[in-house]
Write a protein that binds this DNA or RNA. Structure first.
Lengths: 193, 193
DNA sequence: CTGCGTTTGCTAATACCTTTAGGCAATTGC
DNA sequence: GCAATTGCCTAAAGGTATTAGCAAACGCAG
């Protein structure tokens, strides 16, 4: 019974990689056990359940994503920052589809509150500062940006844009331009009717 | 061995209802068999697989959603139509969360091409006609609208908006106003820089 | 270095869910 | 009314999750 040297961390990382390869849904304790050439039951020494594994992968992904975004946004403001934020987000989703899915895994309230999810919200608010929105408009804008980024990226991942010849990149840029325009209009008080 | 009178249609409908109650992920052939008081293997006379059941539920949801949207939009144009479209979409997702999830089930290319998904695209384009966008802008706009609607609705369903006191409805209206404004700006050629 | 407690992986067992194969009865069509 | 089809059943195999109890490996104290 040579010990393999498992740990929650190693399992989480392996799970994240597996997710990127075969999809978050297919990440299973059995698959992980196979990879480490270990019996499934052995994993329960490190993880309480399959749910805990998924939660940990989700938390990892949220951290990674927040790190990427944070780095991308550093030193930028306004439209530049918006594009950097959005691109970092989209890049991560494209490079790590399984992890991205994991980041959308529904966490319970407390876990979510302790996750890097809060950094995401803070960064979005920091980004919006340049547009000078009053509350509750800033909150509305946080939600709109989140919706667009997540919506676009998830539709793109689902292949929803592959039916038309128009380049997804062009649509992405057009969308970012639109968001920038609308936020500037809102910020200066020259909001649309 | 009294016959129960199953059929792919009845199973699909029951599956859709089950999805709304317990979530699309939890819709299982076993659960359905239990509901109809029938052995699981019997379902294979009507469905090739669990995957087929999910696909059928997805197609049903796409049809229903397209019907709702189509009815809501009828006779409206511009901002009115935009709001009607968006509200119908959001309402459906709130009333039928399981079905809405199902509508996002990844279909293979042919199935998707034969689904009501194409009606969705057509309706979106019809909606945009009032804004008078040239190609490829119209395509960009289709994608942006799809992203916002899906993104908002799915973040809302995931409870992503419950951490802040600001009303989701207000954010929704604010977002629709923003989209209307940006589309009008794009359409008249007075696009933002 | 020896011994003891803890950790870690194992076997065994239970409980679902999916899918296939093969059988018999109810229903349908002629 | 009979034959063919269809619809539901039993049986069985394979995958995943989870729990309980056991034994070897490890790590630290003395």
């Amino acid at each position: 019974m040579a010990r393999v040297g498992l740990s929650a961390e190693r399992l989480t990382l392996a799970g994240a990689e597996l997710a990127d390869e075969v999809g978050f849904e297919q990440v299973t304790l059995s698959a992980l056990a196979r990879q480490f050439d270990v019996k499934v039951a052995s994993l329960y020494s490190h993880l309480k359940s399959s749910h805990e594994l998924k939660t940990r992968i989700a938390l990892l992904a949220l951290e990674e994503l927040a790190d990427r975004v944070s780095e991308a946004v550093a030193g930028r403001a306004g439209r530049d920052a918006l594009a950097a934020f959005a691109d970092a987000y989209r890049d991560y989703a494209r490079r790590h589809p399984g992890r991205y899915d994991a980041a959308r895994f529904r966490l319970d309230r407390e876990t979510a509150a302790a996750s890097a999810g809060v950094r995401h919200a803070q960064m979005t608010r920091a980004l919006l500062r340049a547009y000078d929105l009053d509350e509750p408009d800033e909150t509305h804008a946080v939600r709109m940006l989140g919706s667009v980024f997540h919506g676009f990226v998830s539709l793109e991942a689902a292949g929803g844009f592959s039916h038309t010849p128009v380049d997804a990149q062009a649509s992405w840029e057009w969308t970012l331009d639109s968001l920038d325009a609308v936020l500037r209009a809102r910020g200066t008080g020259t909001a649309a009717p």
